[in-house]
């Protein structure tokens, strides 16, 4: 761990000013991922800008019936916030499927979006990793890749995005509000995270001198027919091998509108509009769910240790769609897959 300077931002403008002045600095909120990475010498910021005093901790309704979540709202507070628990239970469920209670207490909403991959090679500075050191090579492609991606990979990187919360935000089509030197802008969630391509060192389309200020949820929360189903190597406190967030708008047994996204399989929460569209207007049944899963996974590519994820993803998508269609969402605390 290298030494670093510590500064506190007084307001959003000050935070943006400070980071623009020193591109080697990093914002810190909960620090649940950043500090780990610093201890491993993966992140070596010369300066940390503490943003925890900024007034970004509110959860408030928006005029169009949505909800605006301040970037500093802790994951725990968000999951248990009445507005979220009642109107966006898929989001609450996804948050509670992640990490541990202690980590969720510290982790912020904005930080959750910014967490970095858990690829073993990204964490070990002894091994080559294009994400950590562009151009050094990807050790995971021919290495231990059980936890790595099957969709949207490139020759330079097969890392996954580790977040559970973001998978739900992708389904909800949240908007990310950011502030930068040129003012504020809004990034649609689908455009926030990137695929690795030939620049795997860039996880997101956030500019280095921008700060996430809020995540905005549209009015539609899919509160009746939803689920977040996470499959992992133990029953809690592990990153997803595959996870699926589903939101359905049902009319009796008929699906009027479907959205679903996958976690644990790609460099970003993975959605496929063609697969979703194939469900719209259909009577919910396992066959159409199988077809949707097949569509999502049509280009999936496994590596030595993770090829099983393709079949696991197919089955998890089907189960998640059944859970959502039946209105029997996955519980995150009964030690049992529904």
């Amino acid at each position: 761990m290298i030494n670093f300077e510590y500064a506190r931002a007084n307001d959003v403008a000050d935070a943006v000013r400070q980071i623009a002045a020193d591109p080697t600095s990093k914002f810190i909120a909960g620090g649940t991922n950043l500090l780990d990475l610093m201890k491993e010498d993966v992140e070596r910021p010369a300066r940390l800008i503490d943003i925890t005093r900024l007034p970004l901790s509110d959860v408030e309704e928006t005029p169009d019936g949505g909800v605006r979540i301040g970037a500093l709202v802790p994951n725990s507070d968000l999951a248990w916030h009445p507005l979220i628990a009642q109107r966006y239970p898929m989001l609450a469920s996804a948050i509670l499927a992640g990490a541990s209670a202690q980590l969720r207490n510290m982790a912020s909403t904005g930080g959750n979006l910014m967490q970095r991959t858990r690829c073993f090679y990204f964490y070990d500075t002894v091994t080559p990793c294009n994400k950590r050191q562009p151009g050094s090579g990807c050790s995971a492609i021919a290495g231990i890749n059980r936890i790595n991606a099957i969709l949207g990979t490139s020759d330079t990187c097969i890392a996954t995005h580790p977040s559970d919360m973001c998978v739900a935000l992708a389904v909800l089509e949240a908007k990310v509000h950011v502030a930068g030197p040129g003012g504020e802008r809004v990034i649609p969630f689908a455009d926030f995270h990137r695929l690795p391509g030939d620049a795997p060192q860039r996880d997101t389309n956030l500019d280095a001198n921008e700060l996430i200020t809020a995540v905005e949820l549209p009015a539609d929360g899919f509160a009746k027919n939803y689920t977040y189903l996470k499959i992992r190597d133990r029953l809690s406190y592990a990153f997803a091998l595959v996870s699926v967030a589903v939101g359905l708008e049902m009319d009796g047994n008929t699906i009027r509108r479907a959205r679903f996204a996958l976690g644990g399989v790609a460099h970003k929460p993975w959605r496929d509009e063609a697969a979703e569209a194939g469900l719209n207007g259909k009577v919910a049944n396992p066959e159409i769910f199988e077809r949707a899963a097949g569509l999502v996974l049509r280009d999936a590519k496994g590596f030595e240790h993770n090829a099983f994820k393709i079949e696991l993803a197919r089955r998890t998508i089907v189960r998640a769609l059944i859970q959502a269609a039946h209105g029997t969402p996955q519980s995150q605390n009964n030690k049992k897959i529904a």
Binding site: R118, G143, R234, S236
Partner: peptide, 24 residues
Amino acid sequence: LIDHAFGRIMNANIAEYHVPVNAD
């Protein structure tokens, strides 16, 4: 988990070396 190319343990931490948690 050892990466034999590096001869190195890759999950040298208790996030990735899994032991049972309460739910298990």
